[in-house]
Design a protein around this nucleic acid. Structure first.
Length: 759
DNA sequence: TAAAGCAG
């Protein structure tokens, strides 16, 4: 996105290596103009050329008869012959009153008389008036609102400041689409900002990041060692660290990463860090004594988010409140489950964590009963649509995504419910809270008041959130470390669901505790449930998994190969990735059947869904009641109508050909996508070529998806590597430390946390 | 160096 140069002329016309030239002349006529792509073909009179010259390139529309100057190269087109491919086309601004009047006559609704009157009123400033204060045209007698509207529209489209910006961006070899954003942000200062403060753009304008700003600056010849560039590069480094889940960086890592981006010596970067700290853009935070590293640098945004989250959470947790009457709980609840229900009945905040099958939903169901008896309203939510739907199904109460609970505004990304407009009173239950990132958790928790209670439910050992932060793990760590923590944490580890003694669960626990796997002996045959098959490379892994899925597992264990067997991959690409498995298994299972082609992105096509295929929905669809991650089977295809029906566990959804982008083949899916689902039989390729993905919680998540059979195929070294990579420390955050610090401070002061000022 | 959530 940031580097979007889509639409640059060189994509359409490969210039025959001509030199960059400037061509000037007069437009004779427009041969072709596509308004949305702005692809334009013009014929023009040029001094020194006998015949009319063909000009091609991207431009806003241009009037016939206009003076132009174009930067570009001569090229020879296979069918259209010699032409001038321009990179930038500028209308030369008319300078004399007569030229301006001539230009105005080409505007819709302006005839000769009106053009004269306008020029008489504003003289050679006319075009500037049109650019900056078009309403002044109303000063001209006989010119009303309607004409004004059509003039300004036409002017902006063909001639206004946006077009000038577009042309300048084209010259700088950056996407002209950014012109609108620039104009909206800076108005008549836009050109000046672009020319003189390109790095400001990265901070101010959505859609412009450091890379684009840097490109502009280089084209402008800005000093590569300038303070502006250094500061922008440092901030960009911290922004980028987000995508690896970090809320902050250790100083050494910030320096290291920034040096790779800026390619400047360390002293310059150190000076930049000092500047940013002085400006308050970068916040250094000391970590507890003995920590390595002893300091983290936060972007202001994340520093504030962590502070706000902790302050609101502890206010919620420390405010004394009337306990709910728990009453008689069902006999079958384990001691842990009872403790969990009692915890939230007497606290403002409680955390419930445990692996799959440990009975979290039973606790939630009982908590809801207790809350209802106490007359509390219910606000149930989860970070994903699918988890919300599941929560709804298991509780029988309505639930939504956290985004919908807070009423996100899609244009701004802001939430209607916030500290100034808090959520209604009642019990808030968040399921799958391991998927809460820092900013969503902050938004949620700051939108609560002391009239809410919050129960966070989740498996802290699963994959961390997409966004930055490790919220659930951090909060658990802080709550468990504080001697008299006001936030009770209940860990469920008793296995229900007839899994006691299961080697799948046993091995999942081994992974969690960093121990080597203990697979079943293959000789025990169908009695076992957890196997490892050695395969030396991706080809052999691929072949083994296909054979296991298509033949051996169905025949030896009786599983249905389409509906009960799931291949789970660390990655999409490669022979041991989801794409290769989906191609092979589709070919094997439904290759001969009738299918429906999904129009692929940009016509590259090639995705076909066939009758009987296992498919997954990949975005939330509230109309069809199908959610991101739902898996079903294609049960009906009407090829001539372009219709396809999927059976999602008894719920049917029909798609038109143009809606097939919401579907993907699902014989194999990524481990990330499998989070929150379980399957009777699971096949997992694990190879050293997956090394970038190999983490303890990735392997744990994959194994715990299996209910009755789990087979890992690949390289033992890859498994060992995954087991060794414990993830917790790989995300830099300060949430746990801040929570602990605030708890200690309040204990020392002997007051409730709400009375403490945060610095 | 790869994977992934939400919203209309």
């Amino acid at each position: 996105m940031e580097d979007a140069v889509a639409g640059m002329p060189e994509r359409e016309t490969k210039p025959a290596a001509g030199d960059l030239e400037v061509l000037e002349g007069v437009i004779e006529r427009t041969v072709f103009h596509a308004p949305e792509s702005r692809w334009t073909v013009l014929r023009a009179k040029v001094a020194g050329e006998v015949a009319l010259v063909t000009l091609v390139g991207r431009s806003a529309g241009i009037e016939d008869g206009a003076d132009f100057s174009a930067h570009g190269r001569w090229a020879v087109h296979a069918t259209h012959g010699r032409q001038f491919a321009f990179e930038a086309l500028k209308l030369r601004r008319p300078t004399t009153a007569a030229q301006i009047a001539a230009r105005l006559r080409t505007y819709p609704g302006i005839k000769e008389v009106m053009a004269e009157r306008i020029v008489k009123r504003f003289g050679t400033d006319t075009l500037d008036v049109l650019d900056r204060e078009p309403r002044r045209l109303l000063e001209v007698t006989g010119l009303g609102d309607k004409t004004l509207a059509s003039i300004t529209e036409h002017h902006e489209q063909r001639q206004g400041p946006v077009v000038e910006l577009e042309n300048r961006l084209l010259e700088l070899e950056v996407s002209p689409r950014l012109a609108d954003a620039l104009n909206q942000r800076y108005h008549d200062q836009a050109m000046a900002m672009l020319e003189h403060h390109p790095y400001r753009l990265a901070r101010d304008v959505r859609g412009i990041g450091f890379q684009t700003a840097d490109k502009i600056a280089r084209a402008l010849g800005v000093d590569l060692e300038s303070n502006e560039r250094v500061d922008a590069g440092l901030l960009h480094t911290l922004e980028k660290a987000q995508s690896d889940g970090h809320c902050a960086l250790p100083p050494a890592q910030l320096l290291d990463d920034a040096r790779k981006i800026l390619r400047l010596p360390a002293p310059l970067l150190d000076a930049g860090i000092d500047r940013l700290i002085n400006e308050g853009e970068l916040i250094p935070r000391l970590r507890p004594p003995g920590s390595e590293p002893d300091e983290l640098y936060f972007l202001r945004r994340f520093d504030e988010a962590e502070d706000n989250l902790v302050a609101s959470l502890l206010e919620l947790a420390c405010t004394p409140r009337e306990p709910w009457e728990v009453g008689e709980l069902p006999e079958h609840l384990s001691p842990g489950q009872r403790r969990a229900v009692e915890a939230i009945a007497s606290s403002g905040v409680a955390i419930l964590t445990g692996g799959p099958g440990t009975g979290k939903s039973t606790v939630v169901a009982n908590v809801i009963e207790v809350a209802k008896r106490a007359g509390a309203a219910l606000l149930l939510a989860a970070p994903t649509g699918r988890a919300a739907k599941r929560l709804e199904q298991t509780t029988g109460e309505s639930a939504s995504t956290v985004h919908r609970l807070l009423e996100v505004r899609p244009d701004t990304g802001e939430f209607s419910y916030c500290a100034n407009n808090p959520l209604p009173d009642g019990l808030v239950v968040i399921d799958e809270s391991s998927m809460l990132d820092l900013e969503l958790a902050e938004a949620l928790i700051t939108a609560l008041t002391v009239n809410n209670r919050l129960l966070l439910v989740g498996d802290a050992d699963q994959l961390p959130s997409v966004g930055p932060g490790n919220v659930l793990r951090d909060l658990i760590r802080a709550a468990e470390a504080g001697a008299s923590s006001p936030i009770p944490v209940v860990r469920l580890d008793t296995i229900f669901r007839q899994q006691e003694g299961s080697t799948i669960v046993g091995n999942a626990y081994r992974v969690l505790h960093g121990q080597p796997l203990a697979p079943d002996e293959a000789s025990r045959g169908s009695a076992g449930e957890f196997f490892f098959l050695r395969a030396s490379d991706a080809e052999r892994t691929h072949a083994k998994i296909v054979e296991m899925a298509a033949e051996r597992i169905p025949s030896a264990f009786g599983f249905d190969r389409v509906s009960e067997i799931q291949v789970l991959c660390p990655m999409h690409k490669g022979q041991a990735g989801t794409e290769a498995f989906n191609r092979a298994l589709q070919q094997a299972y439904t290759g001969e059947r009738e299918g429906l082609d999904a129009p692929g992105p940009r016509g590259e096509g090639g995705r076909t869904f066939r009758l009987g295929d296992r498919v997954m929905q990949i975005r939330n669809d509230y109309e069809r009641n199908v959610f991101n991650g739902d898996i079903g089977v294609v049960t009906r295809i009407v090829a001539n109508a372009g219709m396809l029906t999927v059976n999602y566990d008894g719920h049917f959804a029909t798609y038109g050909r143009n809606e097939l982008g919401a579907l993907r083949l699902a014989y194999a899916i990524s481990i990330h996508k499998s989070q929150g689902s379980e399957f009777p039989a699971v096949l997992i390729p694990m190879l050293t070529e997956h090394h970038v993905m190999l983490r303890r919680n990735l392997l744990y998540t994959a194994i715990t998806r299996a209910r009755r059979l789990c087979v890992i195929v690949g390289d033992l070294r890859a498994i060992e590597r995954a087991v060794r990579q414990a993830d917790a420390a790989l995300r830099w955050t300060g949430l746990a430390e801040r929570t602990l610090a605030l708890l200690e401070a309040s204990a020392e002061a002997g007051v409730g946390v709400q009375a403490l000022e945060l610095d």
